[in-house]
């Protein structure tokens, strides 16, 4: 999944690196607004969670399996800015310590999976959540649709980058068809998993889910009188 070194040419890699650096800088400031002085430990633990989540392989059948990318999931659970920040840190750690994704392609990976994945997922999530009834039970389906859309969107942005700075003479139309087709399948898996994970967290601790917090706040404290017999 991670773009390796040499896939896109050097100028494209540098430009996406600048975009990624700018995006992460904004995300840092905004995440501090979402989390204040808890930012470092909370984002660190959420990043560790995303990394562990990517380690679970979901069986697809025929012996193959896929794993979660987690952009939309992180955005719904902890908010888009903190989510993008956590995913960027995960990608940075993977590039420096696990040789997963090239160091020169780090900017591309952060732009695609961190920024585009999180924000496309979150935007669709908010749109769908606005249409669905304002109940906590509609958070999970909205998150699933956000995840479903976020993966092909990231794949299309990759195709765009490939059209600008690709190093293989493959027809862009063919690349776009292959990337979209394959990533729609991945997106369906991502959607099912994201929806199920969000549903389980909403059921247990709705106050922790960023995308459900505005629904929890409106629930008023209800004092019930004990049934005395």
């Amino acid at each position: 999944m991670h773009v390796p070194d040499g896939f896109l040419d050097a100028p494209t890699s540098i430009v996406t690196g600048v975009v990624a650096a700018g995006g992460v800088a904004v995300a840092l400031r905004k995440a501090r607004g979402e989390l204040d002085d808890r930012t470092a430990p909370m984002a660190g633990l959420v990043a560790a969670f995303i990394f562990a989540g990517q380690m679970i392989n979901f069986p697809v059948g025929a012996g193959t399996s896929g794993h979660l990318l987690g952009g939309a999931l992180a955005a719904v659970l902890v908010g888009p800015w903190t989510g993008a920040l956590c995913l960027s840190v995960v990608l940075l750690v993977q590039a420096l310590f696990m040789a997963d994704g090239g160091v020169t392609a780090l900017g591309t990976n952060i732009t695609l999976m961190g920024l585009v994945g999180c924000f496309a997922g979150y935007a669709v999530f908010r749109l769908v959540a606005a249409v669905l009834p304002r109940r906590t039970s509609s958070v999970a389906p909205a998150a699933a649709i956000g995840a479903l859309v976020s993966v092909p969107v990231a794949a299309s942005v990759f195709t765009l980058l490939f059209a600008i700075g690709g190093t293989a003479p493959v027809e862009i139309g063919a690349v776009l068809t292959a990337m979209l087709g394959w990533h729609t399948v991945i997106g369906v898996g991502e959607a099912v998993v994201t929806g199920l994970v969000v549903a389980s967290v909403v059921a247990a601790r709705p106050d922790l889910v960023h995308g459900a917090r505005h629904l929890v706040d409106t629930q008023e404290l209800e004092i019930r009188t004990a049934a005395t017999t």
Binding site: M42, F49, I56, V192, V193, V197, V198, S200, V201, R205
Partner: peptide, 30 residues
């Protein structure tokens, strides 16, 4: 059986529990 697609809901609930545990650990660490 983690190799069966039928375990998707279980795996997903596990991830949900892991998120809550990690988040609460973060709060305790803070």
């Amino acid at each position: 059986n983690p190799r069966s697609p039928r375990s998707w809901p279980t795996l997903a609930r596990t991830l949900g529990a892991l998120f809550i545990r990690s988040y609460e650990r973060g709060e305790r660490v803070h």
